[in-house]
Simulated assay, not measured.
Amino acid sequence: MVRIRMHLSFIDRTGSHEFEVPPGVVDTLPEFLDIHGIRSDEIGMAIADGRWKVPRDIVIDEYSVIEVFPHLEGG
């Protein structure tokens, strides 16, 4: 089981802070996020098992925890 943790505005958009994804349900992080209405270009940062990763390269079943952050804005 893979845990996908959403952060900041993604929590409001998906309605949850954390999802548990059984093996084989979806293949890649962009595929999972698309199901929840989040486009790949909206991802500011993704961390898989504590390491920064390029979101499009994340194959969900290869990790135990994936954290997803939107682009940070402010000034």
Rank of each mutant, 00 (worst) to 15 (best):
T28C: 09
I35M: 01
P70D: 03
G50Q: 09
V21C: 12
P70W: 01
D57N: 12
V2E: 14
D41V: 05
W52T: 14
L8T: 13
P23G: 13
I43Y: 00
D41M: 07
P23E: 15
I11A: 07
P23H: 15
F19V: 05
I11W: 13
F10R: 10
E73S: 14
I35R: 04
F69R: 02
E73C: 08
S9V: 06
M45A: 01
Y63K: 05
F69Q: 05
T14C: 15
R3Y: 10
I60S: 02
R13V: 05
L29Y: 00
D57V: 03
I58S: 13
E18D: 07
V2T: 13
R3W: 07
F32D: 04
L33E: 06
S16E: 09
F10Q: 12
P70F: 00
R13H: 03
V26F: 05
I35A: 00
E67Q: 04
V59R: 11
I47W: 06
K53P: 00
E42R: 01
I43K: 02
R13K: 11
P70Q: 02
I58K: 10
D34V: 13
R3D: 06
S40N: 04
V25M: 09
V65W: 06
A46M: 06
R5I: 09
L33P: 06
S40C: 02
F19P: 01
R13A: 09
K53S: 05
S64Y: 11
T28Q: 12
H36S: 11
V59E: 09
A46L: 06
G75W: 12
L72W: 14
D41K: 03
I58C: 14
F10S: 12
G37P: 06
E31A: 12
R3S: 07
R5C: 03
F19R: 00
I58M: 15
L8Q: 15
P55H: 10
W52I: 14
V54P: 05
S9A: 12
S64I: 11
I47D: 06
V68H: 10
V65H: 11
L8A: 15
F69D: 04
I60T: 01
G24L: 08
S40A: 08
D41W: 05
W52A: 15
D61S: 02
T14W: 14
R13I: 08
D12F: 11
L33C: 13
L29C: 04
G37K: 08
I11V: 14
I60V: 08
E18P: 02
I11C: 09
T14Q: 14
H7G: 09
M45G: 02
F69K: 05
R13N: 06
F32S: 04
H71S: 12
T28P: 03
G15S: 10
S16T: 04
D61Q: 00
H7C: 14
R5K: 13
G75T: 06
G37S: 08
G24A: 07
S64C: 11
D12K: 08
P23N: 14
G74F: 10
I47N: 05
R39V: 12
G44M: 01
E62N: 03
G24Q: 07
E42A: 01
P30W: 09
P22L: 15
T14E: 13
S16G: 07
R51T: 14
G37W: 02
G50E: 13
R13L: 11
H71A: 13
G74E: 12
P70C: 03
H7F: 12
R39Y: 09
E62V: 02
V21L: 15
S16C: 04
R56Q: 10
R56I: 03
G24W: 10
